[in-house]
Design a protein around this nucleic acid. Structure first.
Lengths: 213, 213, 213, 213
DNA sequence: GATGAATGAGTATTCATTCAT
DNA sequence: TATGAATGAATACTCATTCAT
């Protein structure tokens, strides 16, 4: 059993080693221009070894997004557990968590958005697909919970509370992608953080109760 | 002269014929899985002919987004020219224009979002790049004008009017991509229109003046 | 008949126009990298027109060598007709003719050598092949005549007079090709003329009679 | 270490296997009409494997000439090391070495001449280019040494000993190419060996001292 | 488990040639 | 004659994946 555990731990280490390399390579070249050999070289392993840990290139790629989603979900759930915050404060914390996750790993984060809306998604193994589905649900659920609470406690308007989480998430990802594209086009400006702050302030204002709408 | 003009018209027709085929093929298979031969077959032309009208696969792909951007820009500018609408009504009209463009060609529209935030952008010819840059600017400019007007006329809050257009655009694209990904994951639900309506109502509420913020 | 003649003359003009363009293009890019469109552009004609005057790309290419061979043959025969020169003087004149032809059109001249020893030769039309064969024969014949005369008149040794022409021609083309390759490798030196002079002096010395061999 | 050595040896074997196939295919079809698939089939390997050993088609082609040059250089240097021969005997040995190399591999030898005077040369990798340059220098150097020695020891005339090697080499390659072209044109005759013998006898006579020039 | 040599299917692109006008 | 748009066959090269060691 001790041996089995050690094996398991070693296996996990190797997996992480590969994912770290994949993250670097995919981030710098994008999915198509990255080759399995590039990743193997970066990980100081042979190409064949990658296939002992990941079924194929797509699953390796998707696993990075899964990892990012996991971290994010965990952070969002932690926000929910902070019972000393009122809904409005939780909304701020949610926003900060999203941004922190983005900052920790901008490119993987962006890829995650792409993954979610692409044909790639259709080619994953059922298991991975299911994992993504579940994580995606958790992430959204964590957000939704904040909004439901806010509606119930009379902080937020109650027109359509179920859609708030979608809008919150869409607002964030849309602005990140859009600002990134402007950065590519203009090469220099970077208003992302500022824009996000304004966006979420407007969003908060839009859903806060006690305003004449 | 008459001949020259006819040639030009024929050339334009052929170009459109190719783009229509490309739109169908790219939409159903995505960029990577679509081959130039697929597109040629769909257009009932030979592969070689495609290269008489488009420098390479990437430029053909990008030209679809350019077309979508052009249509969109035109629509948004038309909204601005409607002098009988007040800023709040213009905001509604803007929203409707975006949605109409999306509905007319969902997949090209989504690809346009992807194009804007991807490595692809870096490999286009300078001319096409410049076109995209200009169109992108026009689109944003048309939105910005509505918001500036709204602030000047006292309809909208004036915290950061310049960012409103970015947020407006990001909000739309983010929700579209996100809802699309949920549709892929869940296969059946389609709340997009509803979610967008709520989103823009919240956004309008958030930037409308005369509310205690 | 006057019309027919004019037609013929026009046809000849157009042919020359194409060959001049082909000479320029092939010289700068080599056979493979030159396209029929390149040549058509240079000639300010359309690609289709080229095929009204030349069966295909290879024949167009070969026709340049034919032209060079024709000029050369003519010059060599003129040498033979100079009855006031003795064999040794004729040999000098022969050498000068070869060099003059080379200088007038170095690259076509070099291509001619390549043509003569390549697989290309096998793909020509029988007519063109026959023309080349005949011209090649004339060229060599003109040289051979000088050597025969020289042997008969007791100027040159008579070991194997028939081979002298071959050696003479091979000596020239070999040195030209070799010096050209050295120029490509070293980029700067150009000893061609000097080397050729020495070579032919040695050759003359080698075949002159009255030396203890 | 034993493993590493074996790997290296296997690698070398495979490289030779490919080069042998390439030699056969290029010899029968020429560079342009030979495809990488042809060569792969001949070598009983897959096309992809060829690229593990050669960067591209041109480098594979050039490597054949390099091999021929290497063999030749080695032979010529061996001639120089034969201290029991006088310069005139060395000249004969040089001639025989050239011819032996040609006979061992006529078509590769001819290609080598073509390579040296063509546009191809410009598209090789710097390393290969440098190798060719160096080998080319060695070959010529080996010849030059014989002539210098001959001049110093009073066997050969001393007009321009430095050019003798160039002429010697040019004489050989020119005659080979020229006789080959005549063989293509006439299909049957083969006077090459005979012509070469006469040529070198004349050359030897031309540079031998003690003759009234 | 780990390797890395070998595979071979897959495809963008070119360009000589044709032919309707 | 001249055009030039259209053709479509031909091919070098890549790279995800496998498997013998």
């Amino acid at each position: 059993m001790g041996i089995k555990e050690r094996r398991e731990r070693e296996r996990e280490t190797r997996r992480n080693q590969i994912m770290a390399a994949a993250k670097r390579v995919f981030s710098s070249k994008g999915f198509n221009r990255s080759t399995m050999e590039d990743i193997a070289n970066d990980a100081e392993l042979s190409p064949g070894t990658l296939y002992l840990y990941f079924k194929n290139k797509e699953e390796l790629y998707a696993s990075l997004s899964v990892e990012a989603l996991q971290t994010l979900t965990k952070r969002l759930e932690e926000v929910n557990e902070k019972n000393d915050l009122n809904p409005e404060e939780k909304l701020m914390a949610l926003t900060e968590s999203l941004y922190a996750s983005y900052e920790a790993n901008p490119l993987t984060f962006i890829n995650m958005f792409h993954l979610q809306s692409s044909i790639t998604l259709k080619n994953l193994s059922p298991e991975l697909m299911s994992t993504i589905k579940k994580l995606s649900g958790s992430t959204l659920g964590a957000c939704a919970k904040v909004f439901e609470e806010g509606v119930n406690e009379g902080f937020f308007i109650d027109n359509h509370p179920v859609a708030f989480a979608d809008i919150f998430w869409g607002l964030f990802s849309g602005i990140v992608l859009w600002e990134e594209s402007k950065r590519i086009i203009d090469y220099d400006k970077d208003y992302l953080k500022e824009t996000l702050e304004i966006a979420f302030r407007i969003f908060g204002r839009g859903i806060r109760k006690g305003q004449n709408s």
